[in-house]
Design a protein around this nucleic acid. Structure first.
Lengths: 143, 143
DNA sequence: TATTGTTATACTCTATAACTATA
DNA sequence: TATAGTTATAGAGTATAACAATA
């Protein structure tokens, strides 16, 4: 079948929420790629940053701050410990505190650097007055 | 263990991309809930809207417009046909065209109505000049 | 050779329910 | 009773590789 002569009409492009989602997806993919060179996911780097700013924080508190369910924090925290980036100590009988190791602190600082570079790349596309929809679209259509 | 006296520090709140992601997630959850009463997912409703605006469009073309991989369009299109919302006709030996049934058109119109109501709810939070980070945060902190 | 649709598969993220041990 | 951590599980969404039929 011949290719359609005209580009498809996409009524969703009228919706700001659609562009918000596409822009968020494009930015997440870019950030994930930057962090992959540090061998951490976006979720892992986010947790490292929160622990770094709040030493001896509990898993549940991290989850509350980042909207990650307690159940989903378990393999995340386990992975960070397995990688030697985080140590866990008993706070009382039922709760544990997480703190960065020296390797974890170094990696967290590198991750923050990646995040700053990532943001510096996208901030100009988000800035300025008005035209939010167009600016969000520019993010997910940029190659 | 006693609750932390002060709220956690979250350095990610300095990042616009973080708020973009949280805002996108909050809006997607809201839209999904609105569409659930029509028994369609956000992806299904999106496909219905694109088919409605482009009768006799192929799966591959829809996928290109919505950034959905061909392989992932298969169960999506199958589900819409199973629900009687879409019919498929052979265009040539290898490509098929999708068109809304009458039920599909009715549901698509209801979905668009839900999307407009959804957007009307969030647009005021996104509007105005400057303070984008704060506006995005307002979206994901609103209950 | 390239494209369409398909199957199979896998990984991530997210979600709930239920259990334990502790407060 | 409520909370912290855990286990198991399930559903989305997304990704790749490979194949058959067809252009």
């Amino acid at each position: 079948m011949a290719a359609r002569a005209e580009p498809l009409k996409n009524p969703l492009e009228e919706r700001v929420g659609y562009h918000l989602r596409r822009a968020s997806g494009a930015m997440m993919a870019d950030l994930a790629q930057r962090l992959a060179s540090l061998d951490v996911t976006v979720a892992e780097a986010s947790v490292l940053v929160v622990i770094g700013a709040n030493p001896a924080v509990s898993q549940t508190e991290i989850g509350r701050a980042l909207a990650i369910k307690r159940a989903n924090m378990v393999p995340l925290a386990a992975g960070l410990m397995r990688k030697g980036l985080v140590v866990r100590k008993a706070a009382d009988g039922r709760s544990h505190t997480l703190t960065l190791t020296e390797a974890g602190r170094r990696l967290m600082l590198k991750a923050e650097k990646s995040m700053r570079a990532h943001e510096a790349h996208y901030l100009p596309l988000l800035g300025g007055d008005g035209g939010l929809r167009e600016r969000l679209k520019a993010i997910w259509t940029a190659r």
